[in-house]
Design a protein around this nucleic acid. Structure first.
Lengths: 210, 210
DNA sequence: AAATAGTTTTTTGTATACAATAAAATCATG
DNA sequence: CATGATTTTATTGTATACAAAAAACTATTT
Protein backbone atom coordinates (compact mmCIF):
# COMPACT_ATOMS: atom_id res chain seq x y z
CA UNK A 1 0.00 0.00 0.00
CA UNK A 2 2.63 2.45 1.12
CA UNK A 3 4.81 1.41 -1.80
CA UNK A 4 2.08 1.86 -4.36
CA UNK A 5 1.41 5.43 -3.33
CA UNK A 6 4.93 6.69 -2.81
CA UNK A 7 7.34 5.09 -5.20
CA UNK A 8 10.26 7.04 -3.89
CA UNK A 9 12.93 8.16 -6.29
CA UNK A 10 16.33 6.52 -6.12
CA UNK A 11 17.73 9.76 -4.71
CA UNK A 12 15.36 9.61 -1.78
CA UNK A 13 15.88 5.91 -1.17
CA UNK A 14 19.64 6.36 -1.19
CA UNK A 15 19.33 9.40 1.08
CA UNK A 16 17.28 7.45 3.60
CA UNK A 17 19.75 4.60 3.50
CA UNK A 18 22.84 6.70 4.06
CA UNK A 19 21.01 8.66 6.76
CA UNK A 20 20.35 5.42 8.59
CA UNK A 21 23.99 4.42 8.16
CA UNK A 22 25.07 7.68 9.78
CA UNK A 23 22.51 7.70 12.58
CA UNK A 24 23.20 4.07 13.45
CA UNK A 25 26.90 4.74 13.71
CA UNK A 26 27.81 2.56 10.76
CA UNK A 27 29.25 5.64 9.10
CA UNK A 28 31.19 7.58 11.72
CA UNK A 29 32.06 11.25 11.99
CA UNK A 30 34.96 12.19 9.74
CA UNK A 31 34.48 9.23 7.41
CA UNK A 32 34.44 10.12 3.78
CA UNK A 33 31.38 9.66 1.60
CA UNK A 34 32.67 9.21 -1.97
CA UNK A 35 30.10 9.24 -4.73
CA UNK A 36 31.65 6.47 -6.82
CA UNK A 37 32.10 4.01 -3.96
CA UNK A 38 28.59 4.47 -2.62
CA UNK A 39 26.94 4.41 -6.03
CA UNK A 40 28.57 1.02 -6.62
CA UNK A 41 27.48 -0.14 -3.16
CA UNK A 42 23.86 0.71 -3.84
CA UNK A 43 23.91 -0.24 -7.50
CA UNK A 44 22.81 3.17 -8.74
CA UNK A 45 24.52 5.82 -10.82
CA UNK A 46 26.25 8.86 -9.42
CA UNK A 47 23.37 11.17 -10.35
CA UNK A 48 20.86 10.10 -7.68
CA UNK A 49 23.69 9.60 -5.24
CA UNK A 50 24.84 13.18 -5.67
CA UNK A 51 21.32 14.40 -4.99
CA UNK A 52 21.18 12.28 -1.87
CA UNK A 53 24.46 13.73 -0.62
CA UNK A 54 23.21 17.23 -1.28
CA UNK A 55 20.17 16.57 0.89
CA UNK A 56 22.26 15.01 3.65
CA UNK A 57 24.45 18.08 3.63
CA UNK A 58 21.34 20.18 3.88
CA UNK A 59 20.28 18.33 6.99
CA UNK A 60 23.71 18.93 8.46
CA UNK A 61 24.72 15.28 8.49
CA UNK A 62 27.59 15.50 6.04
CA UNK A 63 29.91 18.29 5.01
CA UNK A 64 30.61 18.73 1.31
CA UNK A 65 33.88 20.40 0.51
CA UNK A 66 33.35 21.72 -3.03
CA UNK A 67 35.38 20.05 -5.77
CA UNK A 68 37.01 17.92 -3.14
CA UNK A 69 35.16 15.42 -0.99
CA UNK A 70 32.33 14.92 1.48
CA UNK A 71 32.53 13.54 4.99
CA UNK A 72 30.25 12.78 7.89
CA UNK A 73 30.15 15.81 10.18
CA UNK A 74 31.55 15.90 13.68
CA UNK A 75 29.50 18.20 15.88
CA UNK A 76 31.67 20.15 18.29
CA UNK A 77 30.73 20.87 21.90
CA UNK A 78 30.12 24.50 20.99
CA UNK A 79 27.84 23.59 18.07
CA UNK A 80 25.98 21.13 20.26
CA UNK A 81 25.35 23.88 22.78
CA UNK A 82 24.08 26.20 20.06
CA UNK A 83 21.81 23.54 18.60
CA UNK A 84 20.39 22.88 22.06
CA UNK A 85 19.79 26.60 22.51
CA UNK A 86 17.78 26.90 19.30
CA UNK A 87 16.05 23.61 19.89
CA UNK A 88 14.85 24.69 23.33
CA UNK A 89 13.44 27.88 21.93
CA UNK A 90 11.65 26.13 19.07
CA UNK A 91 10.21 23.46 21.36
CA UNK A 92 8.89 26.03 23.77
CA UNK A 93 7.08 27.73 20.92
CA UNK A 94 5.79 24.40 19.58
CA UNK A 95 4.53 23.38 22.99
CA UNK A 96 2.73 26.68 23.54
CA UNK A 97 1.06 26.40 20.14
CA UNK A 98 0.25 22.75 20.73
CA UNK A 99 -1.37 23.79 23.97
CA UNK A 100 -3.67 26.13 22.07
CA UNK A 101 -4.37 24.13 18.93
CA UNK A 102 -4.12 20.43 19.67
CA UNK A 103 -7.12 18.14 19.81
CA UNK A 104 -7.72 15.55 22.56
CA UNK A 105 -6.51 12.70 20.36
CA UNK A 106 -3.18 14.48 19.93
CA UNK A 107 -2.64 14.48 23.68
CA UNK A 108 -3.51 10.81 23.72
CA UNK A 109 -1.00 10.24 20.92
CA UNK A 110 1.71 11.96 22.95
CA UNK A 111 0.98 9.90 26.05
CA UNK A 112 1.13 6.70 24.02
CA UNK A 113 4.48 7.58 22.47
CA UNK A 114 5.83 8.54 25.87
CA UNK A 115 4.66 5.26 27.43
CA UNK A 116 6.15 3.21 24.61
CA UNK A 117 9.42 5.11 24.90
CA UNK A 118 9.65 4.33 28.60
CA UNK A 119 8.77 0.69 28.05
CA UNK A 120 11.46 0.23 25.42
CA UNK A 121 14.01 1.79 27.73
CA UNK A 122 12.95 -0.55 30.55
CA UNK A 123 13.53 -3.45 28.20
CA UNK A 124 17.00 -2.09 27.51
CA UNK A 125 16.39 -1.33 23.84
CA UNK A 126 18.20 1.98 23.85
CA UNK A 127 18.14 2.57 20.09
CA UNK A 128 14.39 2.04 19.78
CA UNK A 129 13.81 4.14 22.88
CA UNK A 130 15.81 7.00 21.36
CA UNK A 131 13.74 6.77 18.21
CA UNK A 132 10.53 7.12 20.19
CA UNK A 133 11.97 10.04 22.12
CA UNK A 134 12.71 11.82 18.85
CA UNK A 135 9.21 11.03 17.67
CA UNK A 136 7.74 12.48 20.86
CA UNK A 137 9.39 15.83 20.30
CA UNK A 138 8.66 15.77 16.57
CA UNK A 139 4.97 15.08 17.20
CA UNK A 140 4.62 18.20 19.32
CA UNK A 141 5.99 20.26 16.46
CA UNK A 142 3.90 18.39 13.90
CA UNK A 143 0.65 18.93 15.79
CA UNK A 144 1.30 22.49 16.92
CA UNK A 145 -0.40 23.83 13.82
CA UNK A 146 2.59 25.68 12.37
CA UNK A 147 3.93 23.84 9.32
CA UNK A 148 6.91 26.14 8.93
CA UNK A 149 7.96 25.48 12.51
CA UNK A 150 7.60 21.74 11.97
CA UNK A 151 9.80 21.79 8.88
CA UNK A 152 12.54 23.67 10.70
CA UNK A 153 12.37 21.35 13.66
CA UNK A 154 12.33 18.26 11.50
CA UNK A 155 15.59 19.39 9.96
CA UNK A 156 17.21 20.02 13.31
CA UNK A 157 16.13 16.58 14.45
CA UNK A 158 18.70 14.85 12.26
CA UNK A 159 21.55 16.59 14.02
CA UNK A 160 19.97 16.04 17.41
CA UNK A 161 19.93 12.31 16.70
CA UNK A 162 23.54 12.45 15.57
CA UNK A 163 24.49 14.07 18.87
CA UNK A 164 22.87 11.25 20.81
CA UNK A 165 25.18 8.72 19.19
CA UNK A 166 28.11 9.99 21.18
CA UNK A 167 26.31 10.12 24.50
CA UNK A 168 26.91 7.36 26.98
CA UNK A 169 23.85 7.42 29.20
CA UNK A 170 22.93 4.70 31.65
CA UNK A 171 19.43 3.38 31.85
CA UNK A 172 18.52 5.08 35.13
CA UNK A 173 19.46 8.52 33.83
CA UNK A 174 17.44 7.83 30.71
CA UNK A 175 14.46 6.69 32.74
CA UNK A 176 14.42 9.97 34.64
CA UNK A 177 14.78 11.83 31.37
CA UNK A 178 11.91 10.03 29.66
CA UNK A 179 9.62 10.49 32.66
CA UNK A 180 9.91 14.25 32.21
CA UNK A 181 7.81 13.82 29.07
CA UNK A 182 4.68 13.20 31.10
CA UNK A 183 5.27 16.27 33.24
CA UNK A 184 5.60 18.25 30.02
CA UNK A 185 2.35 16.83 28.63
CA UNK A 186 0.49 17.84 31.76
CA UNK A 187 1.92 21.36 31.62
CA UNK A 188 0.87 21.61 27.97
CA UNK A 189 -2.64 20.37 28.81
CA UNK A 190 -2.96 23.02 31.50
CA UNK A 191 -1.48 25.71 29.30
CA UNK A 192 1.11 26.57 31.94
CA UNK A 193 3.62 28.44 29.79
CA UNK A 194 6.16 29.17 32.49
CA UNK A 195 6.28 25.53 33.49
CA UNK A 196 6.57 24.45 29.85
CA UNK A 197 9.61 26.70 29.46
CA UNK A 198 11.33 25.53 32.61
CA UNK A 199 10.76 21.85 31.90
CA UNK A 200 12.09 22.13 28.36
CA UNK A 201 15.11 24.09 29.50
CA UNK A 202 16.15 21.40 31.96
CA UNK A 203 15.01 18.56 29.69
CA UNK A 204 17.07 19.62 26.72
CA UNK A 205 20.06 20.75 28.73
CA UNK A 206 19.92 17.34 30.35
CA UNK A 207 19.93 15.85 26.89
CA UNK A 208 22.88 17.95 25.92
CA UNK A 209 25.11 17.34 28.93
CA UNK A 210 25.43 13.67 28.03
CA UNK B 1 39.67 39.10 -5.39
CA UNK B 2 36.29 37.72 -4.49
CA UNK B 3 36.17 35.85 -7.78
CA UNK B 4 39.57 34.33 -7.38
CA UNK B 5 38.71 32.83 -4.03
CA UNK B 6 35.20 31.64 -4.71
CA UNK B 7 34.76 30.38 -8.21
CA UNK B 8 31.19 29.34 -7.73
CA UNK B 9 29.92 26.22 -9.41
CA UNK B 10 27.42 26.55 -12.24
CA UNK B 11 24.76 25.13 -9.93
CA UNK B 12 25.26 27.95 -7.46
CA UNK B 13 25.45 30.63 -10.13
CA UNK B 14 22.23 29.40 -11.69
CA UNK B 15 20.60 29.17 -8.28
CA UNK B 16 21.49 32.76 -7.48
CA UNK B 17 20.21 33.91 -10.85
CA UNK B 18 16.84 32.19 -10.60
CA UNK B 19 16.50 33.35 -6.99
CA UNK B 20 16.95 36.93 -8.16
CA UNK B 21 14.39 36.34 -10.92
CA UNK B 22 11.87 35.17 -8.34
CA UNK B 23 12.58 37.82 -5.72
CA UNK B 24 12.48 40.60 -8.29
CA UNK B 25 9.11 39.45 -9.54
CA UNK B 26 10.37 38.46 -12.98
CA UNK B 27 9.24 34.92 -12.23
CA UNK B 28 5.86 35.11 -10.57
CA UNK B 29 4.09 32.74 -8.22
CA UNK B 30 2.58 29.78 -10.06
CA UNK B 31 4.87 30.11 -13.05
CA UNK B 32 6.54 26.89 -14.08
CA UNK B 33 10.28 26.39 -13.91
CA UNK B 34 11.13 23.76 -16.54
CA UNK B 35 14.64 22.38 -16.53
CA UNK B 36 15.10 22.26 -20.29
CA UNK B 37 13.89 25.80 -20.97
CA UNK B 38 16.00 27.35 -18.24
CA UNK B 39 19.10 25.33 -19.07
CA UNK B 40 18.91 26.64 -22.63
CA UNK B 41 18.33 30.18 -21.32
CA UNK B 42 21.47 30.05 -19.18
CA UNK B 43 23.50 27.99 -21.61
CA UNK B 44 24.21 25.18 -19.15
CA UNK B 45 23.19 21.55 -19.07
CA UNK B 46 20.29 20.19 -17.05
CA UNK B 47 22.58 18.75 -14.39
CA UNK B 48 23.58 22.00 -12.64
CA UNK B 49 20.11 23.37 -13.29
CA UNK B 50 18.49 20.49 -11.46
CA UNK B 51 20.76 21.07 -8.49
CA UNK B 52 19.83 24.74 -8.49
CA UNK B 53 16.12 23.91 -8.50
CA UNK B 54 16.60 21.48 -5.64
CA UNK B 55 18.19 24.24 -3.57
CA UNK B 56 15.45 26.72 -4.46
CA UNK B 57 12.89 24.19 -3.34
CA UNK B 58 14.83 23.78 -0.16
CA UNK B 59 14.60 27.49 0.50
CA UNK B 60 10.87 27.32 -0.09
CA UNK B 61 10.93 29.43 -3.23
CA UNK B 62 9.73 26.79 -5.68
CA UNK B 63 7.63 23.68 -5.30
CA UNK B 64 8.81 20.54 -7.06
CA UNK B 65 6.08 18.07 -7.87
CA UNK B 66 7.99 14.80 -8.31
CA UNK B 67 8.14 13.39 -11.82
CA UNK B 68 5.98 16.25 -12.98
CA UNK B 69 7.03 19.88 -12.86
CA UNK B 70 8.24 22.68 -10.62
CA UNK B 71 6.65 26.07 -10.08
CA UNK B 72 7.26 29.22 -8.10
CA UNK B 73 5.44 28.97 -4.79
CA UNK B 74 2.50 31.09 -3.77
CA UNK B 75 2.53 31.73 -0.03
CA UNK B 76 -0.97 31.69 1.43
CA UNK B 77 -2.18 34.10 4.12
CA UNK B 78 -2.10 31.27 6.64
CA UNK B 79 1.47 30.28 5.73
CA UNK B 80 2.53 33.92 5.92
CA UNK B 81 1.09 34.13 9.42
CA UNK B 82 2.94 30.99 10.47
CA UNK B 83 6.21 32.19 8.98
CA UNK B 84 5.83 35.49 10.85
CA UNK B 85 5.16 33.58 14.07
CA UNK B 86 8.37 31.55 13.79
CA UNK B 87 10.32 34.52 12.55
CA UNK B 88 9.33 36.63 15.53
CA UNK B 89 10.41 33.90 17.90
CA UNK B 90 13.77 33.39 16.18
CA UNK B 91 14.47 37.12 16.04
CA UNK B 92 13.71 37.56 19.71
CA UNK B 93 16.23 34.84 20.51
CA UNK B 94 18.78 36.33 18.10
CA UNK B 95 18.37 39.77 19.61
CA UNK B 96 18.77 38.51 23.14
CA UNK B 97 21.93 36.64 22.20
CA UNK B 98 23.22 39.60 20.22
CA UNK B 99 22.67 41.67 23.31
CA UNK B 100 24.95 39.36 25.27
CA UNK B 101 27.60 38.55 22.70
CA UNK B 102 27.94 41.39 20.24
CA UNK B 103 30.93 43.71 20.15
CA UNK B 104 30.70 47.51 19.84
CA UNK B 105 31.50 47.42 16.13
CA UNK B 106 28.52 45.15 15.56
CA UNK B 107 26.20 47.74 17.05
CA UNK B 108 27.80 50.34 14.83
CA UNK B 109 27.27 48.06 11.85
CA UNK B 110 23.57 47.76 12.69
CA UNK B 111 23.12 51.51 13.01
CA UNK B 112 24.82 52.05 9.66
CA UNK B 113 22.60 49.54 7.89
CA UNK B 114 19.54 51.05 9.50
CA UNK B 115 20.54 54.57 8.43
CA UNK B 116 21.22 53.48 4.88
CA UNK B 117 17.90 51.66 4.75
CA UNK B 118 16.04 54.79 5.81
CA UNK B 119 17.96 56.93 3.35
CA UNK B 120 17.15 54.64 0.42
CA UNK B 121 13.50 54.70 1.39
CA UNK B 122 13.54 58.50 1.52
CA UNK B 123 14.98 58.52 -1.97
CA UNK B 124 12.09 56.29 -3.04
CA UNK B 125 14.24 53.29 -3.91
CA UNK B 126 11.92 50.72 -2.41
CA UNK B 127 13.70 47.62 -3.71
CA UNK B 128 17.09 48.66 -2.37
CA UNK B 129 15.52 49.71 0.92
CA UNK B 130 13.91 46.28 1.26
CA UNK B 131 17.25 44.66 0.66
CA UNK B 132 18.85 46.66 3.46
CA UNK B 133 15.95 45.85 5.75
CA UNK B 134 16.54 42.14 5.16
CA UNK B 135 20.23 42.66 5.77
CA UNK B 136 19.49 44.41 9.07
CA UNK B 137 17.57 41.44 10.41
CA UNK B 138 20.06 38.96 8.98
CA UNK B 139 22.97 40.77 10.63
CA UNK B 140 21.42 40.40 14.06
CA UNK B 141 21.21 36.65 13.53
CA UNK B 142 24.69 36.52 12.02
CA UNK B 143 26.31 38.34 14.93
CA UNK B 144 24.31 36.73 17.73
CA UNK B 145 26.94 34.04 18.10
CA UNK B 146 24.73 31.07 17.25
CA UNK B 147 25.60 29.70 13.81
CA UNK B 148 22.75 27.20 13.81
CA UNK B 149 20.26 29.95 14.48
CA UNK B 150 21.75 32.05 11.70
CA UNK B 151 21.47 29.24 9.18
CA UNK B 152 17.83 28.68 10.02
CA UNK B 153 17.05 32.35 9.81
CA UNK B 154 18.93 32.79 6.57
CA UNK B 155 16.73 30.13 5.04
CA UNK B 156 13.54 31.76 6.25
CA UNK B 157 14.73 35.05 4.83
CA UNK B 158 14.12 33.95 1.25
CA UNK B 159 10.43 33.40 1.91
CA UNK B 160 10.19 36.61 3.89
CA UNK B 161 11.51 38.50 0.88
CA UNK B 162 9.06 36.68 -1.37
CA UNK B 163 6.19 37.79 0.86
CA UNK B 164 7.27 41.41 0.54
CA UNK B 165 6.80 41.31 -3.22
CA UNK B 166 3.05 41.19 -2.83
CA UNK B 167 2.85 43.96 -0.28
CA UNK B 168 1.79 47.40 -1.42
CA UNK B 169 3.20 49.71 1.22
CA UNK B 170 3.40 53.49 0.86
CA UNK B 171 6.55 55.33 1.75
CA UNK B 172 5.23 56.85 4.98
CA UNK B 173 4.24 53.47 6.40
CA UNK B 174 7.66 52.14 5.44
CA UNK B 175 9.39 55.09 7.06
CA UNK B 176 7.65 54.37 10.35
CA UNK B 177 8.53 50.72 9.99
CA UNK B 178 12.22 51.34 9.32
CA UNK B 179 12.50 53.79 12.21
CA UNK B 180 11.55 50.98 14.57
CA UNK B 181 14.98 49.50 13.85
CA UNK B 182 16.71 52.14 15.93
CA UNK B 183 14.39 51.57 18.86
CA UNK B 184 15.25 47.89 18.63
CA UNK B 185 18.98 48.58 18.57
CA UNK B 186 18.69 50.68 21.72
CA UNK B 187 16.72 47.97 23.49
CA UNK B 188 19.37 45.41 22.49
CA UNK B 189 22.15 47.69 23.73
CA UNK B 190 20.41 48.02 27.08
CA UNK B 191 19.61 44.32 27.28
CA UNK B 192 15.93 45.07 27.86
CA UNK B 193 14.47 41.68 26.93
CA UNK B 194 10.83 42.55 27.45
CA UNK B 195 11.13 45.59 25.22
CA UNK B 196 12.99 43.56 22.57
CA UNK B 197 10.11 41.09 22.50
CA UNK B 198 7.38 43.68 22.27
CA UNK B 199 9.13 45.68 19.55
CA UNK B 200 9.72 42.59 17.43
CA UNK B 201 6.16 41.42 17.87
CA UNK B 202 4.72 44.66 16.55
CA UNK B 203 7.51 45.14 13.99
CA UNK B 204 7.03 41.78 12.33
CA UNK B 205 3.25 41.76 12.58
CA UNK B 206 3.41 45.16 10.92
CA UNK B 207 5.49 43.63 8.23
CA UNK B 208 3.00 40.83 7.83
CA UNK B 209 -0.22 42.82 7.67
CA UNK B 210 0.89 44.54 4.47
C1' DA C 1 64.41 12.85 7.68
C1' DA C 2 61.83 16.87 5.96
C1' DA C 3 60.40 19.65 2.50
C1' DT C 4 59.31 20.37 -2.26
C1' DA C 5 58.25 19.79 -7.14
C1' DG C 6 56.30 17.01 -10.34
C1' DT C 7 53.39 13.13 -11.55
C1' DT C 8 49.67 9.96 -10.98
C1' DT C 9 45.37 8.82 -9.14
C1' DT C 10 41.09 9.87 -7.16
C1' DT C 11 37.12 12.54 -6.96
C1' DT C 12 33.94 15.86 -8.16
C1' DG C 13 31.64 19.00 -11.91
C1' DT C 14 29.19 19.10 -16.13
C1' DA C 15 27.23 17.53 -20.55
C1' DT C 16 24.60 14.39 -22.96
C1' DA C 17 21.68 10.40 -24.07
C1' DC C 18 18.07 7.50 -23.03
C1' DA C 19 14.13 5.72 -20.09
C1' DA C 20 10.00 6.47 -17.62
C1' DT C 21 6.32 9.09 -16.31
C1' DA C 22 2.95 12.60 -16.31
C1' DA C 23 0.58 16.34 -18.86
C1' DA C 24 -1.64 17.80 -23.00
C1' DA C 25 -3.87 16.97 -27.20
C1' DT C 26 -6.50 14.22 -30.14
C1' DC C 27 -10.00 11.30 -31.38
C1' DA C 28 -13.89 8.28 -30.85
C1' DT C 29 -18.36 7.69 -28.84
C1' DG C 30 -22.60 8.38 -26.31
C1' DC D 1 -21.49 18.88 -27.09
C1' DA D 2 -19.53 16.64 -23.46
C1' DT D 3 -16.85 12.87 -21.94
C1' DG D 4 -13.72 9.23 -21.69
C1' DA D 5 -10.07 6.51 -23.93
C1' DT D 6 -5.89 6.82 -26.68
C1' DT D 7 -2.11 8.86 -28.65
C1' DT D 8 1.28 12.36 -28.64
C1' DT D 9 4.22 15.54 -26.50
C1' DA D 10 6.66 17.59 -22.74
C1' DT D 11 9.16 16.89 -18.66
C1' DT D 12 11.54 14.69 -15.18
C1' DG D 13 14.56 10.54 -13.54
C1' DT D 14 18.69 8.01 -14.26
C1' DA D 15 22.93 6.32 -16.48
C1' DT D 16 27.13 7.25 -18.59
C1' DA D 17 31.11 9.73 -20.53
C1' DC D 18 34.31 13.17 -20.33
C1' DA D 19 36.56 17.45 -18.27
C1' DA D 20 38.60 19.69 -14.44
C1' DA D 21 40.27 20.01 -10.12
C1' DA D 22 42.10 18.38 -5.89
C1' DA D 23 44.37 14.82 -3.15
C1' DA D 24 47.79 11.30 -2.82
C1' DC D 25 51.95 9.58 -4.12
C1' DT D 26 56.85 9.58 -5.65
C1' DA D 27 61.18 11.08 -6.68
C1' DT D 28 64.45 14.52 -5.71
C1' DT D 29 66.93 17.76 -3.12
C1' DT D 30 68.60 19.68 0.96
Amino acid sequence: MEELISRKSLSDQVHDHIKRMILSGELKGGERVPEATLSKLFGVSRTPLREALKKLSDYGLIFIKPRSYAEVVIISEEEAKQIAEVRTDLEILSSKLFSKNAKPEHFKELREISAKCLELNNRGDKAASFELDSLFHLKIAERCGNQCLYEIFEKLDARIQLLRLNQQLNRETLTDYIKQHNILITAIENGEEKIISSILNTHIMHDFHS
